[in-house]
Every structure is written in structure tokens, then in C-alpha cells.
Nucleic acid binder design. Structure first.
Lengths: 177, 177
DNA sequence: TCACAGTGCTTTGAATTCGAACATATACGG
DNA sequence: CCGTATATGTTCGAATTCAAAGCACTGTGA
């Protein structure tokens, strides 16, 4: 990688290079296409949405229980939307919700055995779809670079804005961890 | 609590590398974050949604008129959803809809002067947001690679079945119910 | 202890989205 | 020229999403 990083900016605030705009638009378009296809597969094979899949996956990889806010934040989701989805998942027996022993207002969420089973049942198909659509036309080098790039972008954005509970406080400082 | 793990081996040995899964997840997460922020800016400065911005941008760059299907397909959108949005945009005086001289069932869409004006008014802010969130942490090399990678992915997916009019022609006969 | 601000989650209401069904228009085969 | 199948766009109903308002709990200072 030649360090072509331009000094901050020549003219911050004005037109972008065609290269920049093109990269941005094609990024959004490709992800949109991919997400639609993935949603199809998940709905067909497991009767769940992509959001529900993300929630289950996150819970499956979590050490123990998670609070609603932690879960919403991890999935890039509004808290009210999460309440709705958690209601559906609980009714379907895929997760459990219960009070926290430490904090009476918090709700702790965990995945159930059925939830894990469903996740395991859709995962192979999910992997197959992403493989054939995303990984197929890419080399290992591409993938490494893609992961590296998007990780930097993600980390950069995570430092900037508040997420799920936006206009409630000026700065979410130490949100604990 | 109790681990009722149903043997993780499941059926197949086509698990993805952690690198692949990581690249995939971080890609979706970063784009999701970016889209949320972009939507905020567009709503604040121009009172339009990201979808509406995409529609206007596409129409602005189109040579002449576009049909509804062409527009929906370009933006990765369902046709019924496009009908709804086109109604809003037309009512706001940002686009026009009219019949096609060649094909009586087609509807031709074009952007108006007001539409172009609105687009021009939100574009600087839009560019500024994407610059500060997406381009800032990337080098020119990164950007080139990103555009190249996503273009290949997009083209690969575009060769597969289309989006907006999926299950409409495929089974040529019998049981339609 | 009480008042008050801050945090966690849910409820509510409006907007948006999609798929299926519908109404027309076009293309094709007999 | 009919009859069937295909293409375009819209309407309809259901599901999902978000922001704002509301309720419940926590922690701090007086």
C-alpha cells in the first residue's frame, strides 16, 4: 500500500472525485443486493428475518446474558424496534427475557436451545448464499483488504455518533463494557 | 445455563474462515451505520429519505425518461414501494409521471427543475457526511480497492436473477392457483 | 428521606416496505 | 382474429421500523 493518503483535504466540503462517488454508490448497491438475497434465504429456510438472525447470532456468541440496550447497539437497531422483535422471538421460544438481579429496570436476554438449533439449521444455507454471492468473485487478498477497510470505517464511525439512544444525552461517555 | 448444544458439527464441512465471516459481518455493520447517518443528514437538510435521494440522483443522471421498472431495478427496490415513493415525489413537484408513447402500459418518469434544485441543495452536505464517515479513515489506495471489489461483487450479483420482478416469469404453465 | 436528574425498556402513532392480487396492454400461436 | 401467456404499473393488506412520549428504577445531593 503506497501511502497515498492525501494531506487531510485539498478542498474539504466540495465535490468528491468520481472515484470516491463511484466507490460509495457501488458499495451501497452491492450491500443492498446482498441483503435482499440473504433475507430470502433466511425467510425460506428458517422463517426469520435478517434482523432476527443477527440478534440470534449475537446472543449465541455472547458469554451470558445481554441487556436490551447492549443487544440493540450491537445490531445497529433502535430500542423500540428491538422490543418488538424480542417479543416475536420470545413468543417463538427462541429467546428468553428476564429481570436483572443487579438492576431492576434492565431486561436480560438469552438464547434458548431452540434458538441455537434454529440458528444452526439456517447457518449452512446462509453461508452458502454469502459464499456464492460475495466470496465467489473475490480472492483471499480482496477479502483481507475488504475486512481491513471496513473494520477501520466501522471503528471510525463508532467513535463518532451515539447509536440507539441518540437524543437523550449529549455524550454517552463511558458506556461501560 | 445448561448447554444443550446439539453437536456443532452439523452436516457439512463448509464452514467459512473466521476471516470471511468477519469481513462479511463488518461490511454489513459499517454500511448500516453509514446509511443511518446519511439518512439523518438528508432528512435534516432536504426533508427527503435515502430512497428518495437515490431516485432523484438516478433520474438526474439518466439521459431522458425512465420507466418505473427501470427505476426500481436501478435502486434495488420493489415496484410497489416505488409507486408509493413516486406518488410522494410527484406530489412534492420533484418528478413528473406520464404515459409512454410507445408502450401504453408503461409510465415514464423524469426529474423536474425543483427536483434538480433540491438534489443540488442536499448534495454538498451529503458529500460532507460520507467524506467524514467513509472516506476520512481510508487512503486513496483503499478507496480504489474498495470500488474495484464492490464493483466485481455487484456485477456478479447482477448476473443472477433480478430483484424487483422476481417470481413473475419462471414457471410457464399450469397450476397457478 | 425527599427531590430530581439520568438510565432502561416499553407503548404509541405514523410512515414505509414488501408480496400478492388486480386491471390493462402487448406478444404470440392457432 | 381469438385465447393464452407475459409485461407494467397500481392497489391492498400485513408486517416492520422509528422517534417521541411514558413508566419504572437508580443514584446523588440537600
Amino acid at each position: 500500500m503506497t501511502d497515498t493518503r492525501p494531506a487531510p483535504d485539498a478542498d474539504a466540503g466540495q465535490a468528491l472525485d468520481p472515484q470516491q462517488l463511484g466507490a460509495y454508490f457501488v458499495l451501497m448497491e452491492a450491500v443492498s443486493l446482498l441483503q435482499h438475497q440473504v433475507e430470502q434465504q433466511l425467510r425460506t429456510e428458517g422463517d426469520i428475518s435478517y434482523v432476527q438472525f443477527q440478534l440470534l447470532a449475537r446472543l449465541a456468541h455472547a458469554p451470558g446474558h445481554l441487556t436490551m440496550t447492549q443487544l440493540a447497539d450491537g445490531v445497529v437497531y433502535s430500542r423500540s424496534g428491538l422490543t418488538y422483535q424480542a417479543g416475536l422471538l420470545e413468543k417463538a421460544g427462541l429467546i428468553t427475557r428476564g429481570p436483572s438481579p443487579d438492576d431492576e429496570r434492565a431486561t436480560l436476554v438469552a438464547i434458548t436451545g431452540n434458538g441455537r438449533a434454529l440458528l444452526d439449521s439456517v447457518l449452512p444455507g446462509h453461508i452458502q448464499v454469502t459464499r456464492s454471492l460475495l466470496f465467489d468473485p473475490l480472492t483471499g487478498d480482496d477479502l483481507h483488504h475488504l475486512g481491513d477497510i471496513m473494520t477501520r470505517v466501522r471503528d471510525h464511525m463508532r467513535t463518532q455518533p451515539p447509536r440507539s439512544a441518540a437524543p437523550r444525552k449529549r455524550r454517552p461517555s463511558s458506556t461501560q463494557a
